[in-house]
């Protein structure tokens, strides 16, 4: 078990350095894309700035800095997820086209192997943007500490949610749109104040699809730290990662290697 984990961590690192060297082959396009992503995120900051400025008060107990902290964690967490596991969001495509074959021929866990094989260029923009944003809002020491911790739990949660969503393709045929939609929800919900969500929605993002643990719980920890909540954050993250992993591996048995054809009669 332990050596398994070690082997696969090594593999992830290997892919990371491999893909990084590929990026340097295209330095201009790398920089341009990073810039594009940072700009994308900045436009949201603009939205919030205009809104808070116009209202002159907080929103549901959140100030501008709080929302920007949500943004910083979401951005860097998402970025890390796509720097290390860019293929997580392509799982459905890999299943449908049979691209997964290549990874199934290799002596590694096909999930880890396939999702870490690619790196998203633009994701570096997200990683950097979150850090820059933290600096711009003059984040407190506690915010920096929680940022340092939660970008990793966020990255793992975002990846796991994508894996879980796309794994449904094994079971029900092409679920690419569902996987992508789920992933977009993940981002959408994690960048708005927790307090605007109520009732069943709040229950949902705190349980079955633990989007609330990506940014909201870390912000709670910033405002009101407790060891219990921190442990809960770690526990939920690991449990969900395990859940996604099992869902994928069980689904893999149904894999049909590009033979999911629609025939006309």
């Amino acid at each position: 078990m332990f050596t398994e984990v070690k082997t696969h961590l090594k593999l992830i690192l290997k892919y990371f350095t491999f893909n990084l060297s590929a990026l340097t082959e295209y330095r201009t396009s790398f920089l341009v894309q990073v810039f594009g992503m940072a700009l994308n995120n900045a436009s949201f900051a603009f939205f919030w700035w205009v809104l808070f400025d116009r209202l002159g008060t907080g929103i549901g107990g959140y100030g501008f800095t709080d929302v920007m902290f949500l943004w910083a964690v979401a951005s860097t967490g998402f970025g890390l997820s796509h720097v290390f596991f860019a293929n997580a969001n392509r799982i459905s495509g890999m299943i449908i086209t049979g691209e997964l074959d290549t990874y199934l021929l290799q002596p590694k866990n096909p999930l880890i192997n396939s999702i870490s094989a690619r790196m998203s260029v633009t994701a570096w923009g997200d990683v950097i943007y979150g850090i820059v944003l933290m600096a711009l809002i003059k984040a407190s020491g506690m915010m920096w500490v929680m940022f340092g911790i939660s970008i990793f739990t966020a990255a793992l949660l975002i990846t796991s949610i994508a894996v879980a969503g796309h794994s449904l393709t094994f079971y029900f045929g092409n679920m690419e749109a569902v996987g992508r939609t789920l992933w977009e929800f993940t981002i959408t919900f994690s960048i708005y104040p927790e307090t605007i969500f109520k009732g069943p929605v709040k229950a949902l993002i705190m349980t079955a699809v633990p989007i609330g643990f990506i940014t909201h719980v870390p912000l709670r920890l910033v405002r009101n730290f407790s060891w219990g909540t921190l442990l809960l954050l770690f526990g939920v993250t690991l449990a969900y990662a395990l859940f996604a992993f099992i869902l994928y591996m069980k689904g893999l048995r149904k894999y049909e290697s590009g033979n999911l054809i629609v025939t006309r009669m």
Binding site: K10, A22, Y26, G98, P107
Partner: peptide, 22 residues
């Protein structure tokens, strides 16, 4: 189906495969 990285020299892909296969 290809096992090679389209934008990189084959030797880079080989090295990667050598670590996949340990």
């Amino acid at each position: 189906k290809s096992q090679l990285s389209f934008h990189l020299p084959p030797v880079d892909s080989f090295r990667l495969l050598s670590s996949v296969y340990e």
